[in-house]
Amino acid sequence: MGEAEAAELAQHLLGGLATDVYLEADRIVIALEPGKLHEAALKLRDHKQLSFRYLSFAGGIDYKDRMDAVYILRSVNHPVVAEMRAQLDREQPVAPTVSDVWSTAGWHERETYDLLGIEFEGHPDLRRILTTSADGVYPLRKDARPHRQQRREWQFEGIAAPRRLPGEGDRGERS
């Protein structure tokens, strides 16, 4: 079964759940409303022929005006890669967890929460995972300013901040 066929099948399977199903760079992209993610995930996983039982990763992308949750799925029966994506609110990105659909999503969602600040509702253990000490800063957001944050902490602790090198800006904002 090729991608086109699989895309057709997925379109048929999801019906009204998906807002759009299209092919891009040899993968099926399934655009969804955030609220429908969980249901669609279950359907995609349990479908006999598609059988997307393997989740490559769950992540997110910050588009400055919106935040996308991205899930890459692989079918175990066919060489087909599918992508579920849902647009989230940029300021309050919340998505339902799929960690009960694929356990592997547990840590991927933790990572996404850690780096992008997307909150996964219903996640059993949503803690920061890689940058445990960066309180309130989500480093992969486009407006994250680790330098500034660091400087503020230094100031707070009474440590002299390192001199800024010539040409080294503060990435977008004057401090």
């Binding site: 039982r53 393997y54 490559s56 990763f57 175990v76 694929w102 356990s103 592997t104 999503a105």
Partner: peptide, 8 residues
Amino acid sequence: QALDFGLS
């Protein structure tokens, strides 16, 4: 389990 865990 392995598929569920996403092992590869």
